[in-house]
Design a protein around this nucleic acid. Structure first.
Lengths: 223, 223
DNA sequence: ACAATAGTGTCTCTTAGACATTATATT
DNA sequence: AATATAATGTCTAAGAGACACTATTGT
């Protein structure tokens, strides 16, 4: 076999919902290239490591244990000049995590709208990750991945509001998610959100698909 | 930077519809490893080549000029032992082409149901490609990529029948596709399909998304 | 004439979307 | 008591699914 050799990295688009905004975990680069600029967390794939394993390891190194976090491969990026050090292919991954009380080790949660320009081609990877998350909320139950183990329907609705920048009708939303078998499992407990009537608590059910899907308003989206 | 080095390849899942069956282009391997076994066409990424460019080149080398063929990245595969020659990462790509009068240079169209075991992890890549194509027919206008430049609604319907193994109602199907703005552009011409009333010819329109989507019957599909 | 395919119309049922009211908590 | 949030019910409109008929070709 003859092929040019590449270094292979994994980069992570770690998304969460904080204060009503979809946020991404960014780290400031400490070493060249792009020192001082914000970038996605990531690292090189090790000798006998598969891609998802490498991404899981990076996630753990950030301080995000893998307890039920959603992690999936996004896409690969290998433009010849994307890294000034040489030929590097990176496999972007998408991770969805609940809003954490404490911020993860290094790095800061940044609203995706304010992420600005990132190092390398990370802005593109981020955009792809955000679009993937937005699309998947339509036809999967993945919104619950942004919620803690137990959550209310309001919390789940706020995820959709943050990710889609829409405000679905609370009553219709409730009807939709509760009528999808296996989406939500009631715990029987209730929790007060400070003021007002306490909401019922749910866990994630076994369902992964949402049928029929919950459609956002589409206006000229990419295929 | 320190990372282990990989050879990087692109592999192609080239799909078409022939005789009512979804078919994939397979080549028999001539050299080890897996000599004599069927495999997806593919090759190594060259020195200053990006991934899609490499996939386009491979497609051209097969004899499939890129005139409007659909080509997209699928996913990357890098299990440590997937290639006995050493560490090889492959980026799977999905190509959708119309049924061609002449078969492409080397390789043979094989119904995906009869593909059997392929070399390397190509069976997995094929399965991912087929599932991607099936899913995309739901919410995009991509079915037209399986049709020639001009086609009838019946031809388009036969694409759905082959890819989904369903038989949508011709009248409902027609209503759906003609009522989606920008999906089909009538040419004003008609064509006879041997017997019966000739059908009207259409071209692909500018629309890429299908809203609302055309839902297939879902029964426990992966997310 | 007959067979085969194309194209159109109607009815029903499900579901999304809009909207008002009642229930239960905190202050 | 006042306020804030949760939960439920009803109406309407749009679209999917089932179905019957007419239209235009080749044999």
């Amino acid at each position: 076999m003859r092929g040019n050799l590449f270094a292979v990295a994994v980069d992570l688009v770690v998304l969460t919902v904080r204060d009503g905004a979809l946020c991404v975990l960014l780290r400031e680069r400490t070493a060249p290239p792009f020192a001082g600029e914000p970038a996605l967390p990531g690292g090189f794939v090790q000798a006998r490591e598969d891609l998802l394993d490498a991404a899981s390891r990076e996630l753990a190194e950030i301080g995000l244990a893998i307890e039920g976090h959603h992690l999936e491969q996004l896409a690969s990026y290998a433009a010849p000049d994307r890294d000034p050090r040489g030929r590097v292919l990176t496999v972007g991954h998408l991770a969805l995590v609940p809003d954490l009380p404490e911020p993860p080790g290094e790095g800061a949660w940044t609203p995706v709208e304010k992420a600005g320009d990132l190092a390398f081609d990370h802005s593109r990877i981020l955009a792809d990750g955000v679009e993937r998350a937005r699309a998947k909320l339509e036809y999967t139950t993945l919104a619950a991945a942004f919620c803690p183990a137990e959550f209310t329907i309001s919390q789940l609705r706020r995820v959709y509001e943050a990710v889609w920048s829409t405000e679905p009708d609370p009553r219709n939303f409730s009807r939709k998610v509760t009528s999808t078998p296996g989406f939500l499992v009631p715990t029987g407990e209730k929790v007060s959100s400070g003021r007002g009537r306490p909401g019922q608590l749910f866990r994630r059910g076994p369902a992964t698909a949402l049928h029929p899907p919950m459609l956002r308003d589409h206006a000229g989206l990419p295929a």
